[in-house]
Each structure stands twice: as structure tokens, then as C-alpha cells.
Amino acid sequence: MKILIADDSRVMRQIVIRTLRQAGHGGHDIVEAENGRQALAMVATEAPDLVLSDWNMPEMNGIDCLSALRASGSQVPFGFVTSEGSEEMRARAASAGAAFLIAKPFTPEAFDDALRSVI
């Protein structure tokens, strides 16, 4: 399985990769994007099986990336990993087609639960 991780923070991308490993999902291929625009392009070139994306990013944010993916016909499973976990944000994520929203700070268990819903 190939997972695309989109976050403008290199530190956070490393933490997400480490948490995936701690959650028992360390065997996947990982590709990384620094913003939503790069993630959008990489979905076409890398054909990931899952996108894990931050919400708040420069160039293109996560929700605009998801909307652009769905508008282009892509149905790649897409989950947010974001510091904003309010009901309003969860509702916006779900209505845009996100499979889940993991709020920071997160635990390996939260990742495992979320990934099991799409694997």
C-alpha cells in the first residue's frame, strides 16, 4: 500500500510516519508532499492508495486539495491529520468526501482506528 503524506511541516511528516509505524502500519510505501498543490499533482503521478493530509497549508490547503481531487474524478481515500478537530471541521471534511479526521495531538491508536476504516 502506498500512502501520500501532505504537510508543510517536515517535522510533522516525520511524526506521522513514526506514528504509523507505532500503530502497526510501518510496512507501507510513503511519499511526501509539502502542500495541497503538490499533493494534488502527486496523486496523479504516484497513484497512492491513501492520502493523509494536513488541513492548513500554504499554496493549497487540504480541503481545497480534496475538492480538486473529487472534481477531477479521483476517489482516492483521503483523511485529514490536523490540529483542528471541532465538529464544524469534521462536518466540512466529511461533506467534502474525507474518510476520517485525526485531530492533533493524536495517538497511534487513533491512526490504527482510522486506517482500518479504509484498508
Binding site: 511541516s9 492548513n56 490540529s83 471541532s86
Partner: peptide, 17 residues
């Protein structure tokens, strides 16, 4: 800068919520 920016981003996001 990336690390402490992410630290305040998480705290700020939770305050927003």
C-alpha cells in the same frame, strides 16, 4: 522553526476548537 511552529499550530488549533 518548523518544530516550534508545529507546536504552536497544535495548541492554537485546539484553542480554536
Amino acid at each position: 522553526a518548523d518544530a516550534i511552529g508545529e507546536l504552536v499550530n497544535m495548541i492554537g488549533g485546539n484553542v480554536k476548537s
